[in-house]
Design a protein around this nucleic acid. Structure first.
Lengths: 193, 193
DNA sequence: GTCTATACACCGATAGAC
DNA sequence: GTCTATCGGTGTATAGAC
């Protein structure tokens, strides 16, 4: 387990550049293309540098993932703190720039235990945050509409936002405006302003 | 392009076994683990057999993908032909068994041009099928609910079904029953029975 | 902190025996 | 139709010079 190889500082700019390169390779060529060589080349470094900053390639991957979800968490927290949290929550998820990267990590979670664990606990954490903020909002459903719960609404928002993002990444855009319009109509009903 | 290497029959049982093995490897270890050796070993064959039945590994992948989407298309067509097409359409997408495999192929579509092209045209085809059948159903929205269009509804169903399936694959199940209940309530409104 | 050099395993693909 | 043998290339990881 514990190798004797020396490791570089965690605050190094080169270390960050390697994590940037992980994201770039995953976006462009997929997680299957992640190798010490591809990552280092993208960062303009020799592949052996990966092993100066990280014990294994997996450790680099985990570090990149933790940085990625920390950024996502910050965006969610900011959205939920505003005066129209549901609209802001949708805005975060309607942004397609991270959809491809998110899916690569989610796909990876199916096959990498360390990524899977972090994905599950992060997902539960985000959901708790959303529920705490949105329960006050969707607390009194109209009679006959009890099925519309905060959880189900946040699930719908995150799911539809992700799939719209993925589709635009591969070149499908037909009907997206229509779908966005329906979602926005729905959340306008729940959170009028 | 055209190699001189001889190829086995397309009706061979061994050829099918190789395609089965592609699906098994993708489900269990992800597309990144797909190699001629891993696929052949899963099928109980030598890795060189891959190159007797397919010109390249990519050709095997494309054949497996085409067989996979043909099965999905058959399920969709059967669902839409019934007497409650919207409910049946949801049943197909609420089934989580293919969620992981679907995502692996979708992730692959981001980085493999042949898979991407097939995914885009297949997605558009399914959507046309759904719209033709559902427009008669959701053709007269109640006043003030014009935003609920057949397209947006099918998009919501496919998106939420996929994400529920992915989450259960990695071990998240909290709130899923609640989400399913909301979807079922919604489609009951659109297609009463 | 970054480099060269090197280990050993596994990759896709081909040739040709049986 | 399936096998053995083999090719050049690339993978992770390490040791040690500078």
């Amino acid at each position: 387990m514990a190798t004797k190889r020396r490791l570089g500082s965690e605050s190094s700019a080169t270390r960050s550049a390697l994590m940037d390169a992980v994201e770039a390779v995953m976006r462009e060529d997929g997680y299957g293309a992640l190798t010490a060589r591809s990552v280092a080349e993208r960062a303009g470094l020799k592949h052996q540098l990966v092993y100066y900053y990280f014990q294994t390639l997996d450790d680099l991957l985990i570090a990149a993932y933790e940085r990625h979800i920390a950024g996502y968490l910050a965006r969610i927290e900011e959205a939920l703190a505003g005066e129209r949290p549901l609209h802001a929550f949708w805005s975060v998820h309607a942004n397609p720039v991270n959809a491809t990267l998110n899916m690569e990590f989610l796909s990876l979670a199916n096959h990498n235990e360390a990524i899977r664990e972090r994905t599950v606990s992060f997902g539960e954490h985000v959901r708790r945050l959303g529920l705490a903020r949105l329960e006050a909002l969707i607390r009194r459903p109209a009679p006959g509409m009890e099925a519309i719960t905060p959880f189900a609404v946040t699930m719908a928002i995150t799911s539809i936002g992700s799939v719209l993002g993925l589709e635009s990444a591969i070149g499908i855009s037909g009907g997206h405006a229509e779908t966005r319009a329906m979602i926005e109509w729905c959340i306008d009903q729940l959170e009028p302003g």
